[in-house]
Simulated assay, not measured.
Amino acid sequence: MIAFIGTGLLGANFTKALLAKGEKVQVWNRTASKATALEADGAKAFDNVADAVRGASRIHLTLTDDAVVDAVLEQAAEGLTPGCYIIDHSTTSTEGALRRTQQWAERGFIYIHAPVFMGPVNALESSGYMLVSGDQEVIAKITPWLSAMTGKLLNLGERTEKAAGLKLIGNLFLIALTSGISDMLALGKAVGVDGSDILGLFSEWNPGAMAPGRLKRVLAAQFDNPSWELQMARKDARLMMEEAAKGDKELVMVSAVAKQMDQWLDKGHAHKDWTIIASGNL
Rank of each mutant, 00 (worst) to 15 (best):
R100C: 01
C84W: 03
M232V: 15
L146C: 07
A190F: 12
R54P: 00
A244W: 01
Q103F: 02
L131W: 02
H271S: 14
V69Y: 02
S196K: 12
K267V: 09
E106D: 08
P115D: 13
L174R: 09
K259V: 11
K189T: 09
L18Q: 14
F109Y: 10
V254F: 03
Q136H: 08
W205G: 11
K167C: 14
G108Y: 00
M240V: 07
F202A: 10
A190S: 14
T160A: 11
W274Y: 13
G79A: 01
G157Q: 05
L199C: 08
G11W: 08
S147K: 10
D51F: 09
S93I: 00
V25Q: 07
Q26A: 15
I87N: 01
R214W: 10
G188F: 12
L38A: 06
K249R: 14
H113P: 03
A3I: 15
I139P: 03
N29L: 04
G8M: 02
M261N: 14
W205I: 15
D224H: 02
F109W: 05
R217L: 10
L219S: 13
D194N: 08
R100T: 03
D224M: 00
D135M: 03
E23K: 09
G213Q: 15
L201E: 05
S126A: 01
H89D: 07
